[in-house]
Design a protein around this nucleic acid. Structure first.
Length: 747
DNA sequence: CAGCCTCGAGTTCC
DNA sequence: CTCGAGGCTG
């Protein structure tokens, strides 16, 4: 179809076409969002949208007549309310080989201090490939159903969950509050019947049962969900007001007594051999089960042990998923593109002939880094038997963890003639700066810093990302647009958008994809984030090595932006001295080969001397920084560099002028050890060290590895050595294990 | 000082 | 979700 240049059209012609497009797009949006059954290809949809916007731009009067102009490009409201889970929905660690399972069980024993012969029962059940759902019952009545979301916050899908036959509306004999967790899925038979029906009626064809289940549950119209054959297995729980049982297995049985479906292949195993036998048996039955599973989940059966084991940051220590081997597929590698990340990392991405792997069409795959392409791992050991990857090669693809496509193997027999090894670029493909690889590093990085447009825009994307400023309506796409047009070059610019470009919102509204509503919403969302938690701010700055956790720890330690900035300034000389000392050491090691060794050594000497001359207060500020748990010299140096870099510091200053920074909540003050720094030494007899640390931290204490004048309590078991002596010298309170347990009320 | 664990940074497709 | 690397433990 040929498109007439809008500028050469009469207004009447344009209006006719515009309204036709408006209706077409409206229908397509409805089909896509509400019915979950797209009637247009993405390409066709985009073409219509572009044409529509081109007309609106050429004839500004038209824009106000079009219902769609204002919503195009605006964030798609999810349509579901948000639900904060009372108890986080965790994910599971993975095991792939039998050995991983043995390691897992050995780890449990170690953590619990169990000898190898002590009984330790685990349950084993199929891992259903669906979506997890949390069902909240109050006084036996279903009051809320929520999807997993990011684990902390999910979507409220109560109305939809009520239409699922396997989910009881009322349960008898349950605790006052009970959150039942399990998996929503679709059986193979129902999935095929649904697709067959849709094939006839022109409805959406789903790629696999999992997508069908997800699409069906996330319907805005619950009546559509009702017509979809969804099922539910219960296997876990969240908030509870009374214990369900003493073991995992009994808890599952109670779910059944409440009227839930539970998986019949849930077994209780006494030994690793039994676990593995059950795994292999489930693997054999896999094709006949009638629903998709992707592995077997093992859980410690005894709930009191589960409680002792507790949680890591995202996974319980007491459970693991033993995954089935991944599905494989062969395809041709058409090319290798290089992406530039926010830290300048150059990441190679494989462009592939589209191929179906595990029910999904894959056309890109990560190649990690230079060495991975060459067939080596980080230690220089061979992977893929050392076979390198060349453009034009036939490669075997799998989806790691059923998600991320990766290259598993190369078929040398099918390698095209004349294919040459891939040459990894040594300059940045975006800004041409040198791309350097530090000794011992796996990645090559663009050295351009914020000069590099790729790095600048990735940093901005990070700034607006979910764990940072999380500005609704300002996602990656919008940031890219604004950056390309020089509207937003650094974070502070976001907070000046309204002032500069929002006048009557004419300028913003003139942009493709923005209308009255979306512009107003954006400015409101930005204003909303002028009040920001210190941790989010620190994380959002995108300082290398300072991720979400480190940012939280730093925020908790300093409490205010000013305190952090002052500490960074104060510690700078000590930070430099630290780096100089590192470099001195390195040079010292290299000195045999160094050509200009005299000069370098004298430099190193000077630096080493500088270490000694750093003012005591600078050293103290540095020590304070690295005393933060989990924050070592590398992270501290990176922080220091960021604050000492004049351009970066100026950008920080410009940014914080727009913000009201909120101090973190004070740590729990209701335990006797809250806010205290404790150190464990010697042998602990009632629990393992890891357990002791976890418990102390749960009570708001900070656990440190070494005794200093900041230490409040030393817990010394038998065999305590230098730490106990030092504590005595410093006059620090010293307790034995029993006294400690008494203090925290867990004797 | 080596091994273990956790965190950071990068990635895909829906 | 995975890999690499930083930091901590023993």
């Amino acid at each position: 179809m040929t498109e007439q240049d809008p500028n050469a059209m009469s207004e009447a012609e344009a209006r006719a076409e515009f309204h036709q497009l408006d209706a077409q797009i409206a229908k397509a949006d409805l089909d896509y969002h509400q019915k979950d059954a797209p009637t247009l290809s993405d390409a066709e949809y985009d073409r219509l949208k572009r044409r529509y916007l081109a007309l609106a731009e050429a004839f500004p009067d038209l824009a106000s007549e079009g219902a769609r102009v204002e919503t195009v490009g605006a964030p798609v409201a999810s349509g579901f309310g948000k639900v904060t889970h009372a108890v986080r929905m965790m994910s599971l660690g993975n095991a792939f080989e039998d050995q991983d399972v043995e390691d897992f069980v050995a780890g449990l024993r170690r953590y619990l201090g169990f000898p190898p012969d002590a009984p330790l029962a685990l349950t084993a059940e199929p891992k259903i490939d669906g979506l997890s759902l949390s069902l909240r019952y109050e006084n036996g009545t279903l009051v809320q159903a929520a999807t997993r979301g990011d684990g902390s916050v999910g979507e409220n899908v109560t109305a939809n969950a009520r239409t699922i036959a396997d989910i009881p509306q009322e349960i008898a004999g349950a605790p006052e509050v009970l959150e039942v967790r399990g998996e929503v899925y679709m059986s193979h038979a129902d999935f095929e019947a649904l697709n067959a029906r849709h094939a006839e009626t022109g409805g959406k064809i789903f790629a696999n049962p999992r997508n069908a289940a997800a699409g069906s549950l996330r319907q805005l119209d619950a009546e559509i969900t009702r017509a979809r054959p969804l099922r539910f297995f219960a296997y876990s729980w969240g908030e509870l007001t009374a214990p369900l049982a003493e073991t995992q297995f009994e808890a599952i049985e109670r779910f059944r007594s409440f009227g839930f479906q539970t998986n019949p292949l849930t077994w209780r195993c006494e030994t690793i051999a039994e676990l593995l036998a059950h795994y292999h048996s489930i693997e054999e039955q896999r094709a006949d089960l009638g629903y998709d599973i992707d592995g077997v989940v093992y859980k410690v059966d005894d709930l009191s042990l589960q409680e002792r084991l507790g949680f890591r940051s995202t996974t319980p220590r007491w459970a693991i998923a033993h995954k089935f081997p991944a599905e494989l597929a062969w395809t041709r590698l058409d090319g290798i593109d290089i992406q530039v990340g926010r830290t300048g990392a150059l990441s190679p991405v494989a462009r592939l002939q589209p191929v179906t792997v595990g029910g999904v069409v894959v056309s890109n795959a990560t190649l990690h880094n230079e060495d991975y392409i060459r067939g080596l791992d980080s230690k220089g050991a061979q992977i893929r038997e050392g076979k390198d990857i060349r453009i034009g090669d036939w490669v075997q693809i799998y989806r790691a963890g059923d998600v991320i496509p990766k290259v598993a193997d190369v078929d040398l027999k099918r390698r095209p003639e004349g294919a040459s090894p891939y040459v990894f670029p040594t300059t940045c493909p975006r800004c041409n700066s040198a791309a350097v690889r530090e000794e011992g590093d796996a990645v090559r990085r663009c050295s351009g810093g914020l000069i590099c447009p790729a790095q600048a825009v990735e940093k901005l994307k990070h700034f607006v990302s979910r764990a940072a400023f999380d500005i609704e309506g300002l996602g990656a796409k919008q940031v890219e647009q604004f950056h390309a047009d020089d509207w937003v070059k650094e974070p502070a610019d976001i907070f000046e958008l309204k002032e500069k470009y929002g006048s009557g919102m004419q300028q913003l509204k003139n942009r493709e994809g923005w209308g009255d509503k979306s512009a107003t919403a954006l400015f409101a969302a930005i204003d909303d984030k002028r009040r920001i938690a210190l941790a989010r701010l620190i994380f959002g700055l995108g300082i290398r090595h300072v991720g979400e956790v480190a940012a939280k720890d730093v925020a908790l330690h300093f409490r205010t932006w000013t305190a952090l900035a002052e500490a960074a300034d104060l510690a700078r000389p000590a930070a430099l001295a630290h780096r100089a000392a590192d470099e001195a050491e390195l040079l010292e090691r290299q000195r045999a080969q160094a050509e200009d060794r005299r000069a370098k050594i004298s430099e190193a000497r000077k630096a080493a001397i500088a270490t000694c001359e750093v003012a005591a207060e600078a050293q103290a500020a540095w020590d304070d920084l690295v005393s933060i748990d989990g924050l070592g010299p590398t992270v501290a140096l990176s922080l220091s560099d960021a604050f000492a870099n004049p351009e970066e510091r100026a950008a920080f200053d410009r940014l914080v002028r727009h913000l009201k920074i909120i101090a973190p909540d004070a740590p729990a003050a209701d335990s006797p050890v809250a806010g205290k720094t404790v150190v464990f030494t010697g042998t602990l007899e009632k629990m393992t060290r890891a357990e002791a640390k976890a418990r102390a931290e749960a009570l708001g204490a900070k656990v440190s590895g070494s005794v200093s004048k900041k230490t409040d309590i030393l817990i010394a078991g038998p065999g305590a050595g230098s730490k106990a002596t030092k504590a005595a010298d410093l006059g620090i309170q010293t307790l034995d294990e029993d006294q400690w347990l008494e203090l925290i009320g867990q004797a």
